[in-house]
Structures are given as C-alpha cells and as structure tokens.
Simulated scan of single mutants.
Amino acid sequence: MNVKVESPKPPVDNIPPAEASALGELERRIADLEQNADLAELSAEARHRDLLISEIKQRIRMRYAAFGISIVAMAFMGYVLGHGVHTYFWGPFVLVPQAVAIAMFIGPVASITTITIMLLIGAFRRFKDDDVDHVNVPSLAAEAAKTGFGGS
C-alpha cells in the first residue's frame, strides 16, 4: 500500500487578523533571510574568484621578477667574463696563473648556463614541489667528490 501523507497546513480561513499580520511578517522575514543567505553565498563566490585572480597576478609578477633578476645576473656574469678577459689577457700574454685563468672563464659560463637552464625549466615545465625529492643524492655527492678531488 502506497499512502501519500501531506504535511498539515493551517486553515487559512479561520486566522485572526493579528495572527495574519504576524504570519505575513514572518514570511517576509524568512524571505529576507533566504535572500541574505543567497547574497552571502554569492559574496563568498565573488571573494573566492577575486582571490584566485590575485593569486594568478602574483604568480605572473613573481615570474617577471625572477626573469628580471636572472637577466641582471647573467649580464653581470657576462660583464665579469669580459672584464677578466680584457684585464688579465693581453693578446698572447696571460697575467694570472693558468688555474685562475680557467676558473675565470668557467665560473661565469657555468653561472649563466645554470640560470638559463633553470629559466627554461621554469618557463616550459614549471617547477614542482616534489622536484627536490627526485634528486639522486648519492650520485650527486659522488660527482661532487670527483669534481672536488680532481677526478674525471
């Protein structure tokens, strides 16, 4: 048996005038509360949207700042390289020891190369939080030890 039960409704015909005005007042207050709840929900959605937009703008500003700083660093390293060449190398004459001359070239070139590679990774693949976890520390330490101790 399928019995449909309706919710009880107050009889509209027998409501005294004072209660009718109170009922109207309550219905208006309920409508106002529902409208305020809807506006609050829309306000929260608008605030969330504004926060997302500001986050995107902040990311763009940080990328421009990082790009600008790296360009300045690369230009400075290029200047250091050029200054070293013109100061310590006069034609065939080298005025500094051979190890210093090699380090003067390798330092700025390695710096410029590292910054460029990091910029390319950041621009095309984006940096991820778990990039540090993927570094193979033992092999990195072995290569650093070989390089530090003069191994090849």
Rank of each mutant, 00 (worst) to 15 (best):
M118S: 08
E41L: 13
G78L: 11
I60W: 07
E41G: 04
L140I: 04
E55D: 15
R61S: 14
K57N: 15
Y64I: 15
P92W: 06
F67Q: 11
Q35V: 07
E6D: 13
Y88C: 01
I121A: 06
L81P: 00
M104P: 00
I102R: 02
A101S: 10
H86E: 15
G151D: 03
I60F: 13
E6S: 13
P92C: 04
E45F: 02
N36C: 05
I30Y: 08
A18N: 11
A20R: 10
G107L: 14
R49N: 09
S152A: 07
P17V: 05
R28A: 13
M1K: 05
I30E: 14
L23D: 00
P108I: 04
R47L: 10
G68I: 01
E27T: 12
V100P: 00
I106A: 11
K128W: 01
V137T: 07
L42H: 04
H83D: 11
F127H: 05
M118F: 15
F93G: 01
V3T: 14
P108D: 04
D13R: 05
F105C: 08
F149Y: 05
V109L: 14
D130P: 00
L81C: 01
V109Q: 00
A142S: 09
F127Y: 11
M62S: 08
A44E: 12
V85M: 11
V100A: 14
A73Y: 07
G107C: 12
D38R: 12
D131R: 05
W90L: 11
G107R: 03
A75R: 03
D130Y: 03
G84S: 04
T114L: 13
A99W: 00
R63K: 10
D32W: 07
K57E: 15
A75K: 00
R49Q: 13
L51C: 02
L51Y: 05
H48M: 10
A18Y: 08
A101W: 09
R59N: 13
D50T: 03
E6F: 12
Q58M: 11
S152K: 00
S70E: 12
A40C: 03
A46L: 09
P92R: 07
F149M: 01
E143Q: 09
A31M: 04
Q58H: 12
L81W: 06
S54K: 14
I121H: 10
S139T: 15
D50E: 14
I115H: 05
T147A: 01
K146A: 08
